[in-house]
Design a protein around this nucleic acid. Structure first.
Length: 279
DNA sequence: CGGGGCTCCTGTGCGC
DNA sequence: TGCGCACAGGAGCCCC
């Protein structure tokens, strides 16, 4: 599922392709993906409304429409938005005023679409933390926030109330490039480490946006093309393969129920084995 | 309250 | 080939 770089790529594509076009009609083939209102109300609310702006908030897309309505799309793991001809197998199809279609696909049916009057109605949108690319996330504040918690740093990076947008792939990639062990308690990061983490986090996310995201399996952009960041991936999914830094095998562990990949030598083990040793 | 575990779903790839 | 299980870019909810 799309993380920040993939949702940002989709957002930029949508701005180019659907901005200021109107939704002429909506077909819902799988009502499970419609969160609110009920399907009939969802369809009625969107009919003949123009897309005034397209934004990203964390991993959600927000389209502002006429009359103060918002279309919020959370693709979660396998949601896709594909522009072009009508797709028979799509869960939801939006017919656009340019004669083209925006098809919502979702193999695992975990994604959700909703129409809201007020963004505060979305618990997700009202609880997500600052965007990692936001300049207002500065070194000293970030350092202090890391020290107010003590979870493994990787769990914290993925906590959407702490930072909005980083998911399982980029959490591992960022920590590898920053040389920080994923199990290290966030409260034990030094100020230089926190500064480096902020810098590397932005670097990795921006680079991933330049490469139009990571296509592990289902991610596609709005024109159904794969992202090219997979070629830049250093640790995610590479357990047992040699580390690009030291050639030792990449390791895999579970952190808050999610696969985590890292190099035991290049990423200091201060939080994992050292903590265990101390008891 | 913070945090772990389960749940929502379908598809794929692996070992037996 | 077939079966069962683990696991997959996410996050809400329950319970300790």
């Amino acid at each position: 599922m799309p993380e920040l770089p993939e949702v940002e790529t989709i957002k930029r594509d949508l701005k180019r392709l659907v901005l200021s076009k109107a939704i002429r009609g909506v077909t819902v083939s799988d009502p499970r993906v419609i969160a609110r209102p009920a399907v009939s109300g969802f369809i009625r609310a969107l009919k003949n409304r123009t897309v005034l702006s397209v934004r990203r908030r964390a991993k959600a897309l927000v389209m502002c429409l006429h009359d103060g309505l918002f279309l919020v799309i959370q693709p979660k793991m396998t949601g896709q938005l594909i522009y072009g001809e009508m797709a028979g197998d799509a869960k939801v199809v939006f017919a656009l005023s340019d004669g083209q279609y925006l098809n919502y696909h979702d193999r695992r049916v975990l994604g959700r679409l909703s129409v809201l009057r007020n963004l505060e109605q979305s618990t997700y949108l009202s609880s997500v933390g600052p965007d990692p690319l936001d300049r207002r996330v500065n070194d000293t504040d970030f350092f202090e926030r890391l020290h107010s918690r003590k979870r493994p740093i990787k769990a914290l990076l993925m906590d959407q109330t702490f930072l909005g947008g980083i998911g399982n792939i980029y959490a591992s990639e960022i920590l590898f490039r920053a040389g920080i062990h994923p199990l290290k308690p966030s409260s034990r990061l030094s100020l230089p480490e926190a500064k480096r983490l902020v810098r590397i986090m932005r670097e990795v996310l921006k680079e991933a946006i330049r490469f139009r995201g990571t296509s592990m399996s289902t991610y596609r952009d709005v024109l159904n093309r794969k992202g090219r960041f997979l070629a830049r991936i250093r640790v995610y999914g590479r357990q047992g393969q040699p580390c690009f830094g030291c050639r030792l095998p990449i390791e895999r562990t579970m952190i808050s129920g999610r696969s985590t990949f890292y190099c035991g030598r290049c990423q200091n083990e201060d939080g994992g084995t050292a903590a265990k040793r101390r008891g």
